[in-house]
């Protein structure tokens, strides 16, 4: 486990101007992106995507089918490269790892009693270790919002640090579950704590709540990452999950990241979309860009 940081409370210092944040985020997200830039943005969206299935009804067959989709996002256009990763429940990591062996697509697993995180620490850590042993390259955990909202920041920090420790070489993505945090100040503080504890990536949501990623929340977290970089020199990634369904939304988020963290962050190593239905909308837009004819959702695979 990593050293306890000097003063987590000092991270509370900054307060977020909610109006200015929302206004700036809305402005950046509505930027008009056309033609070549649009195509590049859409291809980047695919390259930065964690294709996700987190349903109770998931089966090995569904995961295998999704892995094929991850390798060939548009079955009719081999020019469109694979997505960054697939994201599954821990018991299906082995299935995904076998299906993706020898390919550049990473296997990500949620772990640590996802999506609530409400379980004993040793069980959560054991779940992480098992997922890594089964072949997960990346682990998505969720912070203890109960402890966070009660002000027990050290507990939140130590939990994440222990998870990072259990990950070994795997990357740790820490979900803040922004829908339960209540304010931009809290989102910023949770970002700072999660980064101080050694997260490789901070992530908005589990996708299980109605309030998840919004442009303002993405901007808030991107600014936290930038400030953390300035203070410590550590480069932390960002993953936006939940509610990103259309290509247009995705392009808006790319603008926010590019303007806040610079284009260096527009790579699969530092930026991800966690999504399932987004891929089909992006492929529809890519097809429209290529053919000049509006494409049909029914012609794409269902996931």
């Amino acid at each position: 486990m990593s050293e306890r940081p000097p003063a987590l409370e000092s991270l509370r210092a900054a307060s977020v101007d909610a109006l200015a944040l929302e206004e700036r985020a809305a402005r950046l997200a509505s930027r008009s992106i056309k033609r070549e830039s649009k195509r590049a943005g859409l291809e980047l969206t695919v390259a930065c995507m964690d294709l996700t299935t987190l349903e109770g009804a998931d089966t090995p067959g569904k995961v295998e089918a999704m892995c094929q989709r991850a390798l060939h996002p548009d079955p009719e256009d081999p020019a469109i490269g694979a997505v960054a990763a697939v994201c599954v429940y821990p018991d299906l990591v082995g299935v995904a790892a076998r299906a993706l062996a020898g390919t550049p697509v990473k296997v990500a697993s949620v772990a640590g009693a996802f999506p609530s995180g409400r379980s004993h620490r040793e069980h959560r850590l054991a779940e992480i270790r098992q997922a890594v042993a089964d072949g997960a390259d990346e682990i998505d955990i969720v912070i203890d919002r109960g402890a966070f909202l009660a002000g027990r920041l050290t507990e939140v920090h130590d939990d994440v640090a222990a998870a990072k420790d259990a990950c070994g070489d795997a990357h740790l993505k820490t979900i803040l579950e922004v829908g339960e945090l209540g304010s931009y100040d809290n989102i910023r503080l949770a970002s700072m704590v999660a980064m101080a504890a050694g997260s490789d990536v901070i992530k908005t949501s589990t996708g299980k709540l109605s309030l998840s990623a919004t442009p303002a929340i993405a901007l808030c977290m991107a600014e936290a990452i930038r400030d953390h970089l300035d203070q410590t020199g550590a480069e932390v990634g960002l993953k936006l999950a939940g509610g990103v369904r259309t290509a247009k939304q995705a392009l808006g988020y790319l603008s926010i990241i590019a303007e806040t963290l610079g284009t260096a962050w527009l790579t699969p190593e530092r930026f991800r979309f966690g999504a399932s239905s987004l891929l089909n909308d992006v492929v529809l837009q890519l097809r429209f860009g290529a053919s000049g004819r509006y494409a049909r959702l029914d012609n794409l695979p269902v996931d």
């Binding site: 000049g292 004819r293 509006y294 049909r296």
Partner: peptide, 8 residues
Amino acid sequence: GWLADHED
């Protein structure tokens, strides 16, 4: 023309 070309 857009209507004729529209796959949906």
